[in-house]
Amino acid sequence: METSTIAPNTRQVRVPKNYETTAWKWMRYSALLLIPLAWIHVILQDVIVGVHRIDLNYVALRWANVGWRIYDIALVAFAFAHGMNGLRQILAEYFPSPKARQTLGWILLALWFVITAIGVVAVVGGVRMPKQ
């Protein structure tokens, strides 16, 4: 015979795995990563070095270290992906049809890819100093 007992304090439930849930998680994880990425960038470029002292020599010096190149690619990729996902969220309010939202998602993904690719090409290509 079943007796009255208090149910446990936690329960695991099956939750649907879908695009919106993944996009929401992505927004949080990328934001967490952007906190150190963006702050280190701002403190180094704007406070320690100062924008007026950034020139080709400085960039060449910085990109001589492959770690900074990876850092800069990560910054452009994650910052832009985070922003594109936010834009997708806002635009979804103006495009209620699933088809329009899907098309919009692909356009924003393509835009992210193009901008990130330009950034990667610039970083990988490095600095070519003008001939004296």
């Binding site: 149910a7 446990p8 304090n9 936690t10 329960r11 695991q12 439930v13 099956r14 939750v15 849930t21 929401w24 998680k25």
Partner: peptide, 8 residues
């Protein structure tokens, strides 16, 4: 929804 866990 993110964790699949309910804390009662």
């Amino acid at each position: 929804l993110a964790s699949g866990k309910i804390n009662y």
